[in-house]
């Protein structure tokens, strides 16, 4: 049976208004918890940008001379593979490295680079990251090798701090999302209680269960959605705030962490999606416990 949009909109709005204090509490809790989720996602992306060379557990990079021959490259690769503690090795072309440098360097730096002058590289994953120095020592002076880079202490620190922060954010966010769900369940319960006369008349005259449920469901979804929009706003503000710290001349850490707005939009969409899911989940439980009983 069709449930008219007009009816649902009217009922949902009046439910939200009657319960406005509980609604505000639920929206704010969803908002704060999803802001943490969003911040955690932003941090994760920012760190991934700043440490892009060292992502996926790369422990050492062998930079090859730009004019190296194919045979020499194969030779270096073969030599590296011989080492027992090397887990995997990936060849990155000059074009790839040039593209990657745009993320890591400031414009005056990367603008002078060309594909021809850019070194190709071998990205090496090790069984034990402490072996990286051994690789550096062994291949630094190898024919065709420009230099060997191992991650600096700073990069390790960034990665560690980011991992800890993300863990803390996610734990806090999960706790807050749980309390947000409980708040939504409670507002739905209050809304059903406030309308118990209407609900009993509806059941009596043969309104379908869906017709009775839909306005209450939308109430929960609306709370999740409003909270999520609040969180999206926070994510965008955070993005623009961090961008304002980015210094293009020095290429500081904020500069390296900067990300395109498109990625931030995707993060916001994820946040909105979680908000809607939390809202639906809360109202589903609220309705099941207090309407169908």
């Amino acid at each position: 049976m069709p449930v008219s949009f007009d009816y649902v909109a009217r009922e949902t709005a009046s439910n939200l208004w009657r319960n406005r204090l509980m609604t505000i509490a639920a929206v704010l809790t969803v908002g704060v918890s999803l802001s943490l989720v969003g911040a955690s996602l932003l941090l994760r992306q920012g760190v991934a940008h700043a440490t892009t060379q060292w992502a996926h557990g790369v422990d050492a990079i062998v930079w090859l001379n730009p004019n190296i021959s194919t045979a020499q490259t194969a030779g270096v690769e073969h030599q590296v593979k011989q080492l027992p503690y090397v887990r995997s090795i990936t060849y990155r072309s000059q074009a790839f490295d040039l593209n990657e440098s745009k993320h890591l360097l400031t414009p005056p730096e990367y603008q002078v680079l060309t594909v021809e002058t850019m070194p190709a590289s071998l990205r090496i994953q090790l069984d034990n990251p402490s072996e990286a120095l051994a690789i550096a020592r062994q291949f630094d002076k190898f024919p065709g090798v420009k230099s060997v880079a191992v991650p600096t202490k700073t990069i390790h620190n960034i990665q560690t701090v980011s991992r800890i922060l993300q863990l803390v954010f996610v734990v806090l966010a999960v706790i807050l999302l749980l309390s947000a769900s409980v708040l939504i369940i409670n507002t739905i319960r209050l809304a059903i209680f406030a309308r118990r006369r209407e609900v009993s008349v509806m059941k009596l005259v043969g309104a379908t269960n869906w017709f009775i449920r839909v306005p209450f469901m939308f109430e929960g979804v609306a709370q999740g959605l409003f909270g999520a929009l609040f969180a999206s706003l926070t994510v965008f503000s955070l993005h623009f705030l961090l961008d304002s710290f980015a210094n293009i001349k020095t290429g500081n850490i904020w500069y390296q962490m900067r990300m395109p707005t498109g990625e931030v939009i995707i993060t916001s969409l994820v946040v909105v999606l979680i908000g809607v899911v939390i809202g639906s989940f809360g109202s589903y439980l609220g309705i099941r416990r207090f309407l169908d009983a």
Binding site: V3, E198, V201, V205, A207, F211
Partner: peptide, 20 residues
């Protein structure tokens, strides 16, 4: 079992409204 905040007309109309 009438709805106290709805008029006579609305009370009767409600029975039709909620069955679509």
């Amino acid at each position: 079992r009438l709805l106290p905040n709805k008029s006579v007309f609305e009370n009767v109309a409600f029975a039709l409204e909620v069955i679509g």
